[in-house]
Amino acid sequence: MELVTPGFGLFIWTLITFLLLVFILGKFAWKPILNSVKEREKNIEEALYAAEKARQEMQNLTNENEKLLKEARSERDAILKEARELKEKILSDAKEAAKIQGEKLLSEARKQIENEKMAAINELKNQVASLSIEIAEKILQKELEDSKKHEEFASSIINKVMIN
């Protein structure tokens, strides 16, 4: 029975010692430790949060950059396109103008040529007419002298004409 009869001395000493221990350690050891552990946990939490935030910001920044870049690129593209269009237009305009000019020149030249041709034909007509008249005059003169000689003459003239 002795074994399970609590002794008063040890009981009271345990109570006193343990309560003192809880009080002292609770105040001067466990509390500071737990506080600094908590502090550290909070710091880690905060650091993680800050890192997450920074990452988010970085992401945002990158996104913005991307956007800006995209905008710039599209603007450049637009400008380039415009320039190209303008060039095209200028070119086509110039071509058009050149074409018109050319055509005008051509038609003028053609007209002139036509005129020249007409003039030449007229000249030729006139010359043929005067030549025919001359030939006829000469033939008639020879015919009138000798018929044989007429013939000879005529053929010689014709030959001449032919050589000409």
């Binding site: 074994l3 399970v4 002794g7 008063f8 040890l10 009981f11 345990t14 109570l15 343990f18």
Partner: peptide, 10 residues
């Protein structure tokens, strides 16, 4: 010792 455990349980 039961006195020890008793005071803690108390």
């Amino acid at each position: 010792n039961i006195a020890f455990t008793m005071s803690l349980a108390l």
